[in-house]
Design a protein around this nucleic acid. Structure first.
Lengths: 258, 258
DNA sequence: GCAACGCTTTGATCTGTATCAAGGCGTTGA
DNA sequence: TCAACGCCTTGATACAGATCAAAGCGTTGC
């Protein structure tokens, strides 16, 4: 079929972009050697980009597909009865979105673009069908899913019972790690979310966020100009995420000063 | 084979206990109608009971199997560098333990019995092998896993950014739901964990826990005698978990008085 | 160019919960 | 029966971070 051929070509084109994606373990090692390569690629759909504020799916909506972020960023959020929105996750390029709907059949949360964002859509039913045909794909699927799910859970645990300072440090390090895993700079990046969204996610008041950024900068750990962040002293940051006991700030100037 | 026959008999015996287990979706609907019923049952091993404090697996240990709690209860915990233990989950009868190791190959946390506890062990490799043979089992597996994982995650989100009062209420309701789902009373149960373990899990000081229990009793929401708990007013409890805005306590006596 | 708006920052105050410090009470062992 | 221990409770105090209030400042639209 001409269609299949077209897809095969397309596959080669996107392979580069896919290499740092969470799905790459699914797409590449398994699919590469098999004639099923087209089958897997066939079900992955590229959609037209979302703009800031666009909703990918809404809480309560039917679960049809999972998504991989290609560029840009999304937030997952749930809205409580009293109308307050609570951000439950940020999704950066290469990460999967919508996994929390697998067991329910409907989306428990709403996914919304933080900036202009392009995504891959993987219809879940077709993926499952495929997994039954391609040996090994099933295992990969389970591992990838549980990895994505648990890395989020780890984050939650890491944030629980931490001071405001530690939470922000943990988040910055997490973002750094996630950017660098996708081949971007680990020390210099642009926050895709506003201060307000950050504070919402971390469970802090926006005012506290603001004060923290200032304090972090005073301590020489970061340089922050709006959303542009430079991690000047990742070690210093990392140090204070450990043992809630470690005394922090207090002193003036950067930790590395003599 | 005699062994197979013995297992078939055993299967019938345990089926009752299994009916309320998280694995029942795996064991029963799928396996019941298939000749593979023995195959699935064969790989599930009953182990001798754990006593309070016994460790099921230790953080860092190799991942071989997942477990289902039959009776009793477990806690999952991680120990930070400074030696502080942090409880990350409680596992009640019918729930699965060890899922967080799937993606890593090693256990990220330690599982420890809160009281005398009996469990089923399901070697994961064999389960995966089986899933490749039995159509549908793979899907069930994925759904069950993601359900178990996400219900924990929901709990974490529910606890984040809540007052101490709300956290305890949320936990009590969660326990109530989980007990009742397994056929036990939703309003009268025995806490398997100590106040200290509770406070650790909820991220509160033990003293705060104590004060909360008193306040809850004063408000007529619960009656607590040691670990024996009676939910006198589940609605009252549920009400205060919602919208952090709702004013709580303050007044004297139970909410339903007038 | 200016006004209006939203986001961020800064300052002052208030409060929930931790922490410190004892005291009660049930349980274990001699 | 009594002492010793651990767990839980109770009270007093301290502090991190929320909340209230208002002022900068960059953006958007006219």
């Amino acid at each position: 079929m001409a269609e299949k051929k077209a897809n095969a070509v397309q596959l080669r084109q996107i392979r580069e972009a896919c290499r740092t994606c969470s799905l790459s373990d699914l797409c590449l090692p398994v699919a590469l050697e098999s004639p099923d390569v087209d089958a897997l690629d066939n079900i992955v759909q590229r959609r037209r980009p979302l703009s800031r504020g666009d909703v990918l799916y809404r809480a309560g909506g039917r679960f049809n597909a999972i998504y991989a972020v290609r560029t840009g960023a999304l937030k997952s959020m749930s809205v409580s009865e009293d109308g307050e929105e609570q951000i439950t996750a940020f999704h950066l390029p290469g990460e999967l979105v919508g996994l929390d709907a697998i067991s329910f059949g409907t989306h428990p949360s709403t996914a919304c673009a933080l900036e202009t964002t392009s995504i891959c859509e993987i219809p879940f039913g077709e993926l499952e069908d495929l997994a039954e045909e391609i040996p090994g794909l099933q295992r990969q699927l389970l591992r990838i899913m549980s990895k994505e799910i648990f890395s989020e859970q780890e984050m939650l645990h890491a944030l629980a019972r931490r001071t405001a300072e530690q939470r922000l440090a943990i988040l910055l390090i997490s973002l750094s790690d996630r950017f660098s895993r996708r081949g971007l700079s680990a020390t210099r990046f642009r926050l895709p979310m506003s201060r307000h969204e950050l504070s919402n996610y971390l469970g802090l008041a926006p005012e506290t966020m603001s004060r923290l950024f200032r304090r972090f900068a005073e301590n020489g750990w970061i340089t922050a100009a709006g959303k542009e962040i430079v991690l000047e002293d990742p070690q210093g940051l990392r140090a204070m995420t450990n043992g809630g006991s470690a005394p922090v700030h207090r002193g003036i100037g950067r930790a590395s000063d003599a």
